Each structure stands twice: as structure tokens, then as C-alpha cells.
Amino acid sequence: MRISVRSRRTALAAFAGGTLVLSGCGSSDNSGSSGEVTLGFVNGGDTEFHSCLQKAVEQTAKTENAKIFTANSHQNSTTELSNIEDMTSRSVSALIVQTVNVDALKGDIAKAKAANIPIYLTSVATSDVNDILGAAVVDLGKLGALDAGWIARDAGGKNVQVGVIAGAPGAASDLMVGGFTKALPSTAKVVANQPGMFNPVKAQDVAENMIQAHPDLQYAFVASEDMALAARKAFDAAGKKDVKIVTANGTDEGLAAVKDGRLSATVANSAMSIGQTAVKNAVGLLAKKKVDKIANIPLLLVTKDNLNKAPQYCPE
């Protein structure tokens, strides 16, 4: 399912700030003037997701014989546009963009269009796909619904209290939380919904306050595994080891926590798959090959019962 761009929403990223970081690697110093495929990757932030995504993009570019330039916008839309401008000055064949804020995409696309450089998006897609080369899309609403389904099955029709620790207000978090809450049964009441800002320290503080205000809490949906593990510490310290946590990512640490019971379920959303798909499909589309313009990244609800089926999250 394609995820449409909506105003006032941020893409899959943690809240962070910083300055431009630009690097380049590849098989030659030619930026594409002789026909070689050159890609510019503009990353959105500094979380584990972003670092794994970039590693996948860089490694896949090598296997596709494409030169790659990379930049990081550090969750700043102004920096993102500057990065886009820098990439267009390098005359790249196409831009791969993990946007920090979908509001920024309009300006990004306009700037790239003016330079006749197509954009390939990761995680989200624009409403009008004619504006882009393509996209590797994550159905974040479905991600939240998968976690809600686990709670529904585990609760077995009983009346239960559920807490939500969201990420940063914006597209990624809003879409996940929206999908989660809509899919919950009527017997599951959301008693608290607060942002953890994709920050484990903040998430632990939110969890501490949540369990104090709602001592009968039975389940928690947390928007990322690093926040979920911080929440686990807070619940355990409050003597609430029975609160069951569902989350998302599918990192090695997250899977280990599912295995030992600290987390009840996670939805695997492989950063490696997103990066690999983005590069391969961007190169294919540039070459007019028969590849999907909009590629949907598979999601898997992972529990103790199917840990061996979880996809690799980050390249080695």
C-alpha cells in the first residue's frame, strides 16, 4: 500500500539536529557525465534505522556499479534542501531521499526537477507518483495494526488497558499509532498516549509517568525497539513486569528481547531491505527496465514462535 504525503508530518526518523555531512564513494571520479550511474543519497537522521539504511544503500550501490554520494540532513528540513541543492550541483543521475519531513518534499522535488534530476523516495511516497522516479514504501498503518492484532489475540476478549509511547509527532509516528489504535478491539482502552520522541531516555520517563498514572496498565505499544527496551526498564522498576510490550523494527537487540520475553512482539521493518530495494529499483528505472515504480517493503509480526523468519535488519 502506498503511503500518501500529508502536511505537518515527519518521515521515519528520530528527533535530532546537526550539520551537513557529505561523503562520496564509488568506482571512479566521474559524476555521471560519461554515462555512468551516479546516485545521491540524502539521509534524514541519525538513528540506527538511518545508519543501517545508509549502509545498505552504499553496499548495494557497489554491487550495482553505481557511484554514490551521501549526505545527512540530521532531521532538519533546511539542511535537507541544502543537501538536495548540493547533489544537483554534482549532476547525479538520481537522488534517493529519506526525508526528514514530508512537507519538505515539495521543495525537494521542485529543486531536483529544475535540475532535471529524478527523486526516488524511501519509506514514503508522494500522492502524485508522477512527480518521482519511484519509492520503496513502508505501510506504517499496517505495522501498527499488526501489533494491535497481537494484543487482541492475547487479551482474548477481556477488557484491558493499553498505553502508547509514540515517536516524534509526524508521519511515521502518527501513521503507526493511527494504524494501531484503529485496529484495537473495543475491549482494549487506550488510557495514555504520549510521545517518546524516538529517544530512549525520554521514553523511559514517559513510561515511568504512565505506570504511576495507570497502575493497572496491561499492554504498551511503543514506536521503536530502543524506546520499548527503555520502557521495559521503567515498568520493571515499578514492579510491573507483567505489562506486555509490542513494538517495531526487528533489530538484533529487539529480536533478542522478544526471545527472552522482555518484549512480546515486534514488527520487522528491515532498513536493509529498504536500502537495497531503493538502489536496485532506482538503477533499474533509470535504465528503463521492468521494475516496480512503487515497491512495498514486507512487514512481519515477530514473536517467540517465528523468530527464525525475521529478516536481517542491518547489513554487516
Rank of each mutant, 00 (worst) to 15 (best):
S273F: 10
L301E: 14
G250T: 13
C25D: 15
N306V: 11
T47W: 09
A207H: 00
N43V: 05
V21M: 08
A256R: 11
F49I: 08
D103C: 02
N116Y: 02
T99L: 01
D252C: 14
I119A: 13
A230Q: 04
I84P: 01
T181K: 15
D147N: 15
G170R: 10
L20D: 06
G35S: 08
S273G: 10
V243T: 01
Q75F: 09
K182R: 13
N209D: 11
P311Q: 11
I211Y: 01
K189H: 12
A171S: 09
G45T: 03
A192T: 01
G26E: 06
V37S: 03
G149L: 14
V102K: 12
M272H: 07
T70H: 01
T181V: 14
N269I: 14
S7M: 06
S82A: 15
A192F: 09
L263I: 12
L217H: 06
G35P: 07
K280W: 04
A136Q: 07
V129I: 15
G32A: 07
A115R: 12
S273W: 07
S51P: 00
E64K: 08
G107K: 09
T78L: 03
C52W: 10
T88H: 01
A61L: 09
S91D: 03
I132F: 11
A295W: 09
V138R: 11
A16K: 10
V21Y: 04
E36I: 10
A66T: 01
K189A: 05
C314D: 05
V191M: 12
S51E: 13
N159T: 10
E316Q: 14
I274L: 14
G35M: 05
A237I: 01
A271P: 01
S270T: 05
D108Y: 00
T247A: 12
G40N: 07
C25T: 13
W150N: 03
S224M: 06
G26F: 05
L133W: 03
T19H: 08
S91K: 06
A230T: 00
V162S: 11
A188V: 00
K280E: 14
A287M: 13
A230D: 02
S273I: 10
E64Y: 09
A228L: 06
Q212T: 15
D29L: 09
T277A: 08
E208V: 08
L299M: 04
E208I: 14
S73Q: 01
S27I: 09
F41E: 04
G156V: 04
A278S: 10
N281C: 01
A171C: 05
L143G: 02
K259F: 02
N308R: 03
A155P: 00
D86K: 15
L12R: 08
A213L: 05
Q59L: 12
N43L: 12
K280A: 07
C52Y: 06
G163I: 00
N83W: 07
R8K: 15
E80F: 02
V124W: 15
V246N: 10
A265Y: 00
K106F: 04
A295R: 07
S73E: 10
S82F: 03
Y120N: 08
A110Q: 15
N30V: 13
S33M: 01
S82Y: 02
Q161L: 06
D103F: 02
K142Q: 15
T10R: 15
D128R: 07
V162L: 14
V5R: 12
I68M: 14
G45Y: 05
A228C: 05
P169V: 07
V206D: 02
L81F: 00
N159W: 03
